[in-house]
Amino acid sequence: MATTSTPGGAAPRTSLWGRLDERIGGYAYIAPFFIVFGLFGLIPILFTAWVSLHQWGALSDPTFVSFDNYARLLADPRFWNAAFNTLSIWVISTVPQLILALFLAHVLNETLLRGKGIFRMAMLVPNITSVLAVGIVFSSIFGRDYGLMNFLLESLGLNRVDWQASQPSSHVAISTMVMWRWTGYNTLILLAAMQAIPRDLYEVAAMDGAGRLRQFFTVTVPQLRNTIIFVTIVSTIGGMQIFTEPLVFGGTQQAITGGAARQYQTLALFLYEQGFRNFQFGYASTIAWVLFIVILGFSVVNLLLTRRIARD
């Protein structure tokens, strides 16, 4: 192998040993990642692709069925239902969450604010709690007959809601868990980005007579473009895989199907149902790949959309 120096790099004068050390070291240092990821990430992923072309049940051998599983999946109403639920829960949890986080970050960005540390800490604590714990607590809050939320609604003279029973109400309840856990975290991230915005921009805007609200929309939001994209993509990746919240919300009996009408079964739950309840490894693997493609597609669309919105 010849000496191909990386273009652009300010090549220092070093010995042959130094260059070798750098090159070999480079590979050696990233090797653990690729080895472990290869074994526990890449191989399973490729293997999943192979499995998805087979019919494979518990305690039996796989038979090759080509793309049958994919055709079956696309014709399976349970799949479309789960896809819709996933999307719906993602939208209901992400959009208000982002708006709320932006707002809270803006408020926290007040320079003369007292008790900053406490408020920031309050933003952090929900996020360090496990999803399972959050699920258990919120399931009790959203109980139909003795849940706190219904007690509250009733005290306000409103009707109680059977949270699990319908699609909209169950989605709202599940989204609440997601929002509670992530709004604060995203607030901190947005806050950090806000603080990095050069103050001159505000000064200029202020001299142009822009009020605080105008400043927010003409300076803050556009400057946060990259961060908003980042936050959205992260929430997309998480949102498409949502599993524990609906699982715990459903208690023990109806959890995996997401209710009697599959009203809150997400794609990850559907995958789990096929893979580890029905032990249809072929079909479950098919769902996994389609889920992956959906996530990839969403991330790309997201990137494009958010870019455009932020630019306008």
Binding site: D162, A165, Q254, T257, A260, A261, Q263
Partner: peptide
């Protein structure tokens, strides 16, 4: 598996779905 579906079916009637 069958039993669960019948149970879910009745559940959908009960929930008014």
């Amino acid at each position: 598996a069958i039993d669960r579906e019948f149970g879910n079916g009745l559940g959908r009637i009960e929930a008014g779905l």
